[in-house]
């Protein structure tokens, strides 16, 4: 049953991916913008423009361009998506697949750590605020939600840099490293295995890198946790309130179940919706963590996609959108399976 469900979902996901790539392909070509001018400059000769247009393949009919992109009925003889490549960047000339696999793990690492921490933090906090509305935990959550929700994340990012890097350094306290990338420039990153620098450094036995990377990731992860935990805590709290008023909790208490058992009953019911919300935030952050990536100069996929858009680098835009969509679909599928595993009422 589970396998049939997964197969069905993967088939649907493939269709969605085809749809998304078509929409993006034609949408960017419908833009009132000239990528050729962007590349050759404003004072280029007509000859140079023509040459550039032809080398980018933009002189051909849009359907032929699509064929070249997909790798079906290609006129250029170059491989396309079907052959397993996303093409080459118009700006750097290197393979987009290679660039994406270099930038994507940076973002994935950032938001994965952030959301795991946020979830682990939100569960107990939300539960205790739900169990005792108006109690200390609840008031803390309220104040936190007010702060975290009232300012955008880039503002908090800048504030944290100012306090934990600048102020702390001025005061002579141990401070966070400068927000200039994932590693101290004097260290060389270990050769990539997973793309997650914390994991790669462990696998390669580079503990100096592990410690330094940890320090560099600390503030960006903290910034994201600070901002995204609010809604998750509120979700858990709301669910907890609802569950505690439910007939089955009242009944469990009336049957004389011990306190911890009743708490476990409640947790079980409040867990699933919070997990779903976390997954949704994850999907959103894939492209939405840009401000944090920029502030800490991490160079993730969000930053890469912004650069591609500003450069009108069509193949790069198409490639990033496709890859981000793919990752989101995988995440949603995983969370649906997990959800069905937790809640027997969901049938495949």
């Amino acid at each position: 049953m589970v396998w049939r469900f997964i197969a069905k979902r993967v088939a649907i996901a493939l269709l969605q991916l085809i749809g998304i790539s078509l929409v993006v392909f034609f949408l960017i070509r419908g833009l009132d913008a000239d990528p050729v001018a962007r590349i050759v400059g404003l004072n280029a000769t007509e000859e140079a423009v023509k040459q550039a247009t032809e080398s980018l393949g933009l002189h051909e009919h849009q359907l032929q361009q699509l064929g070249n992109y997909l790798g079906i009925f290609s006129s250029s003889g170059k491989p396309g998506i079907v052959q397993g490549t996303l093409g080459e960047s118009w700006v750097t000339g290197s393979s987009i697949l290679e660039e994406v696999t270099r930038f994507l793990p940076i973002t994935l690492e950032l938001i994965t750590y952030a959301l795991i921490i946020a979830f682990l933090l939100a569960m107990p906090l939300g539960m205790s605020s739900g169990t005792r509305p108006g109690g200390a935990a609840d008031r803390f959550t309220f104040v936190w939600g007010l702060f975290a929700g009232s300012q955008p994340e880039f503002w908090w990012g800048l504030m944290f840099v100012f306090v934990f890097f600048f102020v702390f350094q001025q005061a002579g306290w141990p401070s966070a490293p400068a927000p200039l990338g994932r590693l101290n420039p004097f260290l060389t990153a270990p050769e990539s295995i997973t793309g997650f620098i914390m994991i790669d450094s462990l696998l390669r036995g580079r503990f100096d890198v592990w410690i330094d990377a940890g320090k560099h990731l600390m503030l960006p992860v903290f910034t994201l946790v600070f901002v995204v935990s609010g809604p998750i805590v509120k979700m858990v709290r709301q669910n907890m309130l609802r569950v505690l008023r439910s007939d089955y909790i009242l009944y469990a208490r009336s049957a004389g179940l011990p306190r911890q058992k009743v708490a476990r009953y409640a947790l079980r019911a409040a867990l699933a919706p919070a997990m779903t919300l976390t997954a949704i935030i994850y999907g959103f952050l894939l492209g939405g963590a840009v401000p944090v990536e920029l502030i800490y100069s991490l160079g993730g996929i969000g930053e890469y996609s912004i650069r591609s858009i500003l450069n009108l680098d069509f193949p790069a835009i198409q490639g990033t959108v496709l890859v981000i969509a793919m990752v989101s679909l995988v995440i949603y599928l995983a969370i649906d399976i997990l959800h069905a595993f937790l809640d027997p009422r969901i049938a495949f």
Binding site: S246, D247, Y248, L250, Y251, A252, Y265, R268, A269, P344
Partner: peptide, 14 residues
């Protein structure tokens, strides 16, 4: 104790 709504009084996920 026996309550109204027997199905809602049992935990839905256990």
């Amino acid at each position: 104790m026996i309550v109204q709504n027997p199905r809602y009084s049992l935990h839905p996920m256990m």
